[in-house]
Design a protein around this nucleic acid. Structure first.
Length: 196
DNA sequence: GCAATGATTTACT
DNA sequence: GTAAATCATTGCC
């Protein structure tokens, strides 16, 4: 039930971001499998200032975004947090979806171990930096294919009704000016794991 | 070569 | 509510 390449190479990154809600992100590191339901995403495109590849600016860091869809883009933010993105669209077009929050499904014990002692279980994966740590995602996973067996996304047949999808502006990109207001953030209504 | 800074989290006041 | 932690990447010198 792994998502096929077709899913990633579509040219509508906003639609893909919405479709990723209810899918499941897995990692398999050193034989340990952890995974969680995607409950919050954001779309990024080279056409707007919030994106690292704005105006087709290609650097060593974001080069993977210019590849065909279906790759992971992992990078370090604020010196201490890894953020996980899904590269979409065809080669040469830099679009990506940031996964902002998960609901833990499998390997919960391992996630707790990686995150250390935390006050509230709800803080386990309710944010982009947190979910990366819980799943063991770091820069060594940058550029991995999501069709491979280290990190991938599955469709477990869960459908999210349109009325249960919350749409709003993206978070933490005030510097992007008017583009920060684009309604490109999607989350599952009422899910306690969605970041605040 | 070097200084500025961010798609965040956490712990304080 | 505000601020500190912390470093790879970036863009300019």
């Amino acid at each position: 039930m792994k998502l096929p390449l077709d899913f990633y190479i579509k040219n509508n990154v906003v639609k893909i971001a919405k479709d990723l809600l209810g899918k499941v992100l897995y990692t398999n590191l050193d034989g340990v499998i952890t995974g969680g339901l995607i409950v919050e995403t954001e779309a990024y495109s080279w056409k707007e200032k919030g994106c690292h590849a704005y105006n087709n600016r290609k650097t060593n860091r974001n080069a993977i975004m210019f590849e065909r869809g279906g790759y992971s883009y992992v990078y370090l933010c604020y010196g201490m947090h890894y953020l996980f993105n899904v590269v979409t669209n065809v080669e040469g077009v830099a679009d990506a979806v940031l996964v902002r929050a998960l609901e833990p499904l499998s390997g919960e014990q391992e996630m707790l171990l990686r995150r250390g002692k935390i006050s509230n279980k709800l803080h386990l994966t309710s944010g982009p930096g947190k979910l990366s740590k819980a799943l063991g995602i770091d820069r060594t996973l940058n550029g991995k294919s999501l069709l491979d067996n280290e990190i991938w996304i599955e469709d477990i047949g869960r459908k999210i009704a349109p009325k249960n999808v919350v749409i709003g502006p993206r978070i933490g990109i005030d510097y992007a000016g008017e583009d920060a207001l684009l309604p490109w953030r999607f989350s599952i209504r009422g899910n306690p794991w969605v970041s605040k």
